[in-house]
Design a protein around this nucleic acid. Structure first.
Length: 700
DNA sequence: GAAGAGAGCGCC
DNA sequence: AAAGGGCGCTCTCTTC
């Protein structure tokens, strides 16, 4: 780097403050100069000087924040929420706070605000973000969007103060902790308000600063100033107040960082943050930034065909049976009362018209099949993936992917909810031209994780054998199985003894989720006594697991949290005896949470390894990665994905021999097992329902 | 009219 | 007395 000439001004500063200036040979302005003000950067010279400063000072970390508007209006979700295409973000200001560790006593913060509307400043910014020191932001996802919009690469090391707060309080605000009916009215109202406040403001920058005793000077003006950027005229100058406000957020993030790291150490969370969660902020942001392409023609056709069907079914139900609204519990109750069938819909003392009950009673009345079909049709039509407004830049839909959206550490997604997208609608997701879509799933990952987390060698052995449920069934039912079936391969057994294998599957998931004999009896359609006996015999296969589960819930209840393999914790919000629900999640979290941790770790690697192949993750599906890659690289990318997923899980759990299932056989759309015709086939069944086998246009 | 509870669908 | 972990989302019905 070229050193800049020493200026008179700097010499003067040095003379005034010799103690601060140890090594500022090349600097245009002295550290003291920068330390005394918010430095607004508008020119190339100033930008370069700032970069030189950052390169030459022994900084510990950099706090950063952006102010921005949007090129396009967002989609109004409800009264409180608007969804913006991240690609429409319009960066305005970048604030940076460079933190210098203390020589003795207190450290020093140097504050800069950069006008991002000036393209000539961007090369220096690009350089700056290549610095190998932590960049600290609060909800850094939007900062990353601003950088990417400007063609600036993300920082190599990132710390998100918002994500850390989420981690630190994981589980504490679960809705089931809201006050029960027994509490008096005042208590209820107070708890409700508190819970709402926590949800909305709990992890905001201001609230976070308050918790850490960090001064935040512009709290009263924050909302007004934040808004001011959304409507800021393109070329207008920024007011000093706007600049100060931008600086304040970066300063706050910069101040929070060392305090949060200290807290992380106290809670045993530091490793988790540094090895998984903070990198996932970048991976996750890129997934959101990428989005998925939707086949708009196929979508519109699907909407039309499903709507036609729904209208016909509804008309029929209204005309023949007087059911005007299939979604009204009240109307259904009246109707079935009239038929004298209402007692058939009793479930545990309550009348229920859910899918299971309707299916059970399908033969009782011709209206029931129509009801089911209408339900399904209106559910599909209501999916937000079908909303044309969500299609943003490049013909892609970008959902919000919420990191730590669940209290176990999993992700959630919304607007639209990709993670919960009905199988039938998945084929509407298609790749960019010249690309293909692939999917790699971990096989039975939670069973393996449960085995390893709870140290049960027998369950580990069965997991490692290939098909864990087949292995269980072969052992469990060994006396009733013909000799040759006791040792055949898992895949073969699966096909031959589906019922036996399914029993094992239900029992296994039952362990993971804490099912009772009553629940098991319901799923298996057997008596309570038989289910209880089955469960007992099943658990007897895994004594180690049984003991470890009891220990996990008891110790967890006492210390107040459950913990994953990486140290990620889910906390209780009360003391004392754990409820059934708490006992269940105390044993489940180490499993679901650890799987989520390994999944993110794998995703972080893929995010980097994909780059050489121009591939990208499009949907992180809890235990499967859906990716998009150039058609000629699809196989390679699938191999990388498989390898990384297996390796990562094995690194967390060295005893496991993980397996994956690869699906790249129909790369023209997202599908299950290379199918791709899910939607068409479902629509065909509609026609069958209404008109027998004559599918098509004949009017009813 | 807004907000919340409850039921019910879908996903892992 | 209930009886399976984690979610998003829509719809109905009630309440304020």
């Amino acid at each position: 780097m070229k050193l800049l000439p020493i200026w008179e001004e700097r010499v003067k500063d040095v003379a005034q403050e010799p103690a601060v200036n140890r090594i500022s040979y090349g600097l245009k302005k002295s550290p003291r100069y920068y330390a005394m003000r918010t430095n607004f950067i508008e020119t190339v010279d100033d930008g370069q000087a700032m970069l030189d400063f950052a390169l030459q000072r022994p900084l510990s970390h950099i706090g950063f924040d952006t102010e921005f508007g949007y090129d396009r209006p967002g989609i109004v979700i409800d009264g409180r929420n608007t969804s913006h295409d991240p690609r429409s973000i319009r960066p305005l200001l970048l604030s940076l706070v460079m933190a210098e560790p203390p020589d003795e006593g207190e450290g020093c913060l140097y504050s800069f605000v950069v006008d991002l509307r000036k393209p000539e400043l961007l090369p220096a910014m690009n350089e700056l973000f290549r610095l190998t020191l932590p960049f600290v932001g609060h909800f850094a996802k939007v900062e990353l969007f601003c950088l990417w919009r400007l063609g600036i690469g993300e920082p190599l090391l990132l710390w998100d103060t918002f994500i850390f707060e989420k981690l630190l309080h994981l589980g504490r605000h679960h809705h089931k902790y809201r006050v029960r009916n027994t509490a008096d009215e005042y208590e209820q109202i107070r708890a409700k308000e508190e819970s709402n406040e926590n949800k909305v403001y709990g992890f905001s920058l201001v609230a976070t600063c308050q918790r850490y005793g960090v001064a935040y000077r512009m709290e009263a003006e924050k909302e007004r100033l934040r808004q001011s950027f959304l409507t800021h005229p393109a070329a207008a100058r920024f007011s000093q107040e706007q600049i100060d406000y931008a600086a304040e957020d970066a300063i706050a993030a910069g101040r929070l960082y060392p305090l949060q790291v200290q807290k992380a150490v106290q809670h045993g969370l530091l490793r988790h943050c540094e090895t998984v969660e903070m990198d996932w902020v970048i991976t996750n942001a890129r997934i959101e930034w990428t989005g998925v392409r939707v086949d708009e023609r196929k979508r519109d056709e699907a909407i039309a065909r499903i709507s036609v069907h729904l209208e016909r079914v509804e008309k029929h139900l209204a005309a023949e049976y007087g059911i005007r609204n299939t979604q009204s519990h009240k109307q259904l109750a009246e109707f079935f009362q009239g038929c004298g069938l209402l007692h058939k819909f009793l479930q545990g003392g309550k009348v229920s018209f859910d899918k299971k009950v309707l299916k059970k009673n399908a033969g009782l009345h011709p209206a029931i099949a129509l009801l089911r079909s209408a339900r399904r049709a209106s559910d599909l039509l209501a999916d937000r993936l079908l909303t044309p407004e969500f299609v943003g830049a490049g013909g892609r839909v970008r959902a919000e992917h919420r990191q730590l959206g669940t209290d176990t550490g999993r992700q959630t997604s919304r607007w639209p909810n990709f993670l919960g997208l009905d199988r039938v609608l998945r084929p509407l997701v298609i790749p960019e031209d010249g690309f293909g879509i692939g999917e790699v799933d971990w096989s039975q990952v939670e069973v393996g994780v449960a085995a390893a987390m709870y140290g049960d060698d027998e369950l580990v052995r069965m997991f490692n054998s290939g098909d864990v449920y087949s292995a269980m069934a072969q052992h469990f039912f060994r006396e009733q199985l013909p000799e040759e079936d006791r040792t055949i391969a898992g895949k073969e057994f699966k096909a031959k003894h589906k019922v036996l294998r399914n029993q094992m599957k239900s029992c296994t998931l039952g362990i993971i989720y804490g099912i009772t004999p009553v629940g098991l009896a319901q799923t298996l359609g057997t008596t309570r006594a038989k289910a209880a006996a089955l469960q007992n015999r099943f658990m007897a296969m895994f004594p180690r697991l049984q003991g470890a589960l009891v220990l996990a819930s008891q110790c967890g209840a006492i210390r107040g949290y459950a913990c994953t393999i990486s140290g990620l914790k889910r906390y209780r919000a009360r003391d004392g005896e754990a409820t059934r629900w708490e006992k269940n999640w105390l044993t489940n979290h180490p499993v679901q949470g650890s799987a989520a941790v390994a999944f993110k770790a794998a995703g972080n690697r893929l995010d980097k390894l994909y780059r050489q192949h121009d591939a990208r993750i499009i949907i992180p599906l809890h235990d499967a990665f859906i990716f998009e890659a150039p058609l000629n690289a699809l196989g390679t990318v699938a191999d990388i994905t498989s390898r990384v997923m297996c390796d990562t899980l094995q690194e967390y759990f060295p005893a496991l021999r993980p397996q994956v299932e690869v699906n790249i056989t129909r790369p023209d759309c997202w599908n299950k097992d290379g199918d791709g015709e899910e939607l068409e086939r479902w629509i065909a069944t509609l026609n069958e329902l209404m008109y027998g086998h004559e599918t098509g246009s004949k009017e009813a």
